[in-house]
Write a protein that binds this DNA or RNA. Structure first.
Lengths: 201, 201
DNA sequence: ACAGCCATGTAACTTGTTACATGATTTT
DNA sequence: AAAATCATGTAACAAGTTACATGGCTGT
């Protein structure tokens, strides 16, 4: 939702045309990830469909302006007022992967963790470089870049801490990582079990 | 991708039918978020379309078994071998929101941050309770629940740290949070500017 | 008999994302 | 003249998610 809502929030400042919106979004977020222009037009279509913006006039340069509606302004206010729920709609990809991996037989979980640590550290380094570069540059446009880089740093650090914690957990309680075989049918259903319920050694 | 890949990884242990797959997934991940059954069948259709699984026979109970293909097994191996890239495909919703919010005039960013801190702390408490409950229970099924809860804890803590850091940044350098007005056209295009490029006081 | 779970599936929808087509204008 | 940028748009797709229809079986 963040692209959709961000574009709407920008439109709350005044009518914009598509290409301009992309520039505004990137200026404000420090172009952390480039935004494909096509997405702007998709999103504008959807926002119009939902009654949050209205397609306005085309000026002498062919710029097609979109203006926010009252419903759109209200949506922006709600968005700003409501906290972001990290849980909703987002499964933690790494945690899910490791949870599943530890339940699988013959998987080198320790190796996966080490590989992930290397990758996360590399990303942390990269983000640190980005944040330092942004801090050394002038201008209010760098705030967005800094904020987003710092958020990435915080999450990468959290990931590394969690990976270490997981290493400790698995080495201290190796029995917890017993692979789970596919559960057999409930007996009442009586299908001949192809795999046993019990853990595989 | 985590649901799709997890289901495929489970199928790598042996053929399963849809409903069983959901139970396996939830057992391994500790049902951190319940998985709608319909999604299983969607995902199986898509995996079959992509050549990673094959629809097998229906047993006497009407259970429709799916079996992994060689291509599917290879995909599982790649998934396990490759680190998760947090950056890809994922914009940080909170960071994007605050980056945009600080660029907007008349927005109470400090208030947004405080509200987010309350929400994040509440979630941290909730996850801590979940993790404690999982730790006190026996059985290898609790490992997944613990892992996922701890990951949530780590990220919630990272969020709180980042929010404090952002507070410091904004209070120490209030000039950085100067709202950005909509940029006027480039002069060469000569459209009369409706808004000024310069910052709004 | 009825509630509820087991089980399969379909249809629709969301946000994000990319690739492509098209043309005007600008820069080199 | 060619390359790059500005600008609008379309079409398709990915992955996740939900709501619904349908039917069998189970326990009370």
């Amino acid at each position: 939702m963040s692209v959709r809502q961000s574009l709407l929030a920008i439109l709350d400042q005044g009518p914009c045309y598509g290409y301009q919106l992309r520039a505004e979004f990137e200026r404000r977020t420090g172009s952390s990830r480039p935004l494909n222009v096509g997405q702007i037009y998709n999103t504008l279509d959807r926002l119009e469909r939902d009654g949050f913006v209205q397609k306005g006039e085309t000026d002498s340069h062919g710029h097609v302006y979109y203006a926010i509606t009252d419903a759109g302004s209200a949506a922006v206010a709600s968005w700003l007022a409501a906290p972001v729920e990290r849980s909703q709609g987002a499964r933690d990809e790494l945690a899910t992967k490791l949870a599943v991996a530890t339940s699988l037989p013959g998987v080198d979980v320790a190796g996966i963790i080490r590989a992930q640590q290397r990758a996360s550290r590399a990303q942390l380094d990269e983000l640190t470089r980005v944040a330092r570069a942004a801090a050394s540059l002038p201008g209010p446009q760098e705030l967005g870049r800094t904020l987003i880089a710092e958020a990435g740093i915080a999450h990468a650090e959290a990931e590394l801490r969690w990976l270490e914690e997981t290493q400790r957990l698995l080495s201290r309680h190796p029995e917890a990582a017993t692979p789970l075989a596919l559960a057999s049918e409930r007996p009442k259903r009586g299908r001949p079990a192809r795999v046993e319920t019990v853990a595989i050694a």
